[in-house]
Amino acid sequence: MNLHALRLFHTVATSGSVTRASELLNISQPAITAQIKKFEKELQLLLLKPLGRGVALTDAGEELALLAKRLFAVEQQIEQFAHNYRSGTTGSIRLAATYLPAHFLIPTWIAKFKQQYEQVEMMINTTNSSGALNQLLNVEVDIAIYGGIAETYPDTILTEELFQDELWFVVAPNHKYANQQVSLSEMMKEPFVMREEGSSTRERLLSLCRTYHSAVPAISLQFNGLHEAITAVIAGYGANFVSSLVVREYVNRGELSRVYVEGIQLKNTIAICTRKNEPLSASTNNLIQMIRQNPYNKPFL
């Protein structure tokens, strides 16, 4: 079927005359008339009939005009979809995040992003550091937001550091080391409440012990969630080694206290990870750009 001729017919049907269609399309009236006559022969249907000095739709023309209206409405929807997808106002983003950014950064980022890009679907997986990178490597997600050690990633991963926060030792306010300065060896004699194996802060603590040839602490309680681990320490058991983003408010309210370990000042890297040499969708690029502009809430750092 000649879609160009159908478009000419559609314009005549919606505008009401060949003359008006000629003006809208900037095509001569004889050319339009000739194209529609060829189209009628192709379909073996009479679509237009004379009416005074103009034309009117036949019964078949009325029916075809409705179908053409639907067809070209869908065409407009496709064009709008393509425009929106190119600009990032529609689409989907699959994101993996470690616990720290997932609970303390991403909710604010996503709220700001959705205010501007409401039609973009967001799928967020919260996992530990190794899980986030594995999902990215296995093409299960588009980007990973990583909070952990500044390390060497696989060659296929591109990493962009957003900022760094401090790692703190914390205990309950009535603990003997609360607000005290102690040695690393003394600190490591305390029982620790930590997250599961694969957690970046847990691995960082063990790495710290290896670096300073210190005994490894007893991890007496282990939780899959950081909130549960923090709650146990607040309740008075053990110590935790954790990002300041997580516990700063607890410390400010007096529910937790810091322990200052001699010679230890460690930072935690918050980074965006993507796959190298792989183009990102416009919606994903829009999210990354928004995160760059609003990486953290300044009062908390």
Results as ranks from 00 to 15, higher is better:
4 H>T: 13
4 H>E: 14
7 R>Y: 14
8 L>T: 06
10 H>I: 06
12 V>Q: 00
12 V>I: 11
13 A>P: 01
13 A>F: 03
16 G>M: 12
17 S>M: 11
18 V>L: 15
19 T>L: 14
20 R>Y: 09
23 E>T: 05
24 L>D: 08
24 L>I: 10
33 T>R: 15
34 A>C: 10
39 F>C: 07
41 K>R: 15
42 E>W: 08
44 Q>S: 13
45 L>R: 14
47 L>S: 08
47 L>H: 07
47 L>T: 05
51 L>I: 15
54 G>W: 14
55 V>L: 04
58 T>S: 09
62 E>M: 12
64 L>F: 04
65 A>T: 05
68 A>H: 05
70 R>Y: 08
72 F>I: 00
73 A>P: 02
74 V>M: 08
76 Q>P: 01
78 I>V: 14
82 A>N: 12
82 A>V: 09
83 H>N: 10
84 N>A: 11
84 N>P: 02
84 N>C: 07
88 G>S: 01
89 T>M: 04
90 T>A: 07
93 I>R: 02
94 R>D: 10
95 L>P: 01
97 A>G: 08
98 T>Q: 09
100 L>M: 05
103 H>G: 08
108 T>W: 10
108 T>P: 00
110 I>A: 08
111 A>T: 13
111 A>F: 12
112 K>S: 12
116 Q>L: 11
117 Y>K: 05
118 E>S: 14
119 Q>T: 05
119 Q>G: 05
119 Q>K: 11
122 M>C: 12
123 M>R: 14
124 I>C: 04
124 I>L: 15
125 N>S: 11
126 T>S: 13
128 N>E: 13
129 S>I: 03
130 S>F: 14
131 G>N: 05
133 L>H: 00
136 L>N: 00
139 V>G: 01
140 E>I: 06
140 E>Y: 11
140 E>D: 13
140 E>P: 00
142 D>I: 01
143 I>W: 00
143 I>S: 02
144 A>D: 06
145 I>C: 07
147 G>I: 01
147 G>D: 02
147 G>N: 03
148 G>M: 06
149 I>P: 00
150 A>M: 10
155 D>G: 04
157 I>A: 04
165 D>W: 02
167 L>E: 02
168 W>H: 13
171 V>T: 12
173 P>T: 09
175 H>Y: 07
177 Y>W: 13
179 N>D: 15
179 N>H: 13
180 Q>S: 07
180 Q>Y: 01
181 Q>N: 05
185 S>H: 14
185 S>E: 15
188 M>G: 01
191 P>V: 06
191 P>W: 06
193 V>F: 00
194 M>I: 10
196 E>Y: 10
196 E>A: 11
199 S>D: 15
203 E>I: 03
204 R>V: 02
207 S>E: 12
209 C>K: 07
209 C>W: 06
211 T>N: 07
213 H>G: 07
222 Q>S: 12
223 F>M: 04
228 E>P: 06
233 V>E: 03
233 V>I: 10
238 G>S: 06
241 F>G: 03
241 F>I: 06
245 L>M: 12
253 R>E: 15
253 R>A: 12
261 V>L: 06
264 I>K: 09
264 I>L: 12
265 Q>A: 14
280 L>M: 08
282 A>F: 00
283 S>T: 01
284 T>V: 07
284 T>W: 01
290 M>K: 05
290 M>G: 02
291 I>H: 04
293 Q>M: 13
294 N>H: 15
295 P>D: 11
295 P>A: 07
297 N>H: 15
